[in-house]
Design a protein around this nucleic acid. Sequence first.
DNA 1: AATGATACTGAGAATCAATCTCAATAAAAA
DNA 2: TTTTTATTGAGATTGATTCTCAGTATCATT
Lengths: 143, 143
Amino acid sequence: MEKKIFIGFLKDKGQRFTKERAAILQKTLSYHGHFDPESLYLKIRETGLKASRASVYRTLNLLCECGLIDKVRKTEHGTIYEYTFGHKHHDHMLCIMCGNTIEFCSEDLERLHEGLCTKQNFRGVNHTFEIRGYCKKCQKKRR
Amino acid sequence: MEKKIFIGFLKDKGQRFTKERAAILQKTLSYHGHFDPESLYLKIRETGLKASRASVYRTLNLLCECGLIDKVRKTEHGTIYEYTFGHKHHDHMLCIMCGNTIEFCSEDLERLHEGLCTKQNFRGVNHTFEIRGYCKKCQKKRR
DNA sequence: AATGATACTGAGAATCAATCTCAATAAAAA
DNA sequence: TTTTTATTGAGATTGATTCTCAGTATCATT
Ligand SMILES: [Mn+2]
Ligand SMILES: [Mn+2]
Ligand SMILES: [Zn+2]
Ligand SMILES: [Zn+2]
């Protein structure tokens, strides 16, 4: 399914679905949570597949363009991605102590998005909402 | 006022309020909107004041630590800051066509922040909400 | 004022994610 | 087959940010 979409996307741009791109797509889909380009690159090498870092970066950009994945956040250590196609949109809470992220969906937030855009004459395409603070575990540790 | 706070913050850490730090604080306060370290550095040089890039980066980190400024967002061209002390918290809409940002305050959003944290047993400290899309002007240009 | 301890500065080096270069290669088109 | 076009990867490059460290400034104590 995702393969079809990616191939179609590439065809429209006059580009090709190579085995490197296939490997990168496959490993991308294998992630359930967030991931970064370097660990994707290592995962590919571990499994005997082949693709250079350059191709990983290039292909992740293509996958973003065609809407299969999204950039979650830029950190001081690089960009975090997640596979989003077919997943319900969600937002994140980020623990500033342990680094864990909690994902959540909020209908209220989606409604608020619409309302705010209407009020400002803004044509909203997407949003990110990130709450930083302390997760349950770290609240205890801290005290 | 801000100077007092910064000086107090530095004193508590056993650090000093030097003329370089004074220059950086002064120019930081002179920004009404968002800014980046490089243009702050250039602004300082233009006005005959002196501070190296290293000191600019170091001092911006200190100003973040003491709560006078905040990082707004990380872009592919670096970090965007804004002077937030004494300003009501706000969030942003970002035009993906012209790059303009719209600032807005939403009580509903603040309430939602609280509600979501309660539901997830998360101790929220702060949040960022960013809506990406097309501003009024760019909607017209696009069609 | 002199001494010693500590913090600060800036020039340039180092770091590191991300992109670019470009010659070799593969796939598609003619 | 020949020609055209897209892709690849190794290594170079870029660019923001941080680090290094020797020289300087500031503070505290005598
Ligand atoms: Mn997620
Ligand atoms: Mn702002
Ligand atoms: Zn935690
Ligand atoms: Zn615009």
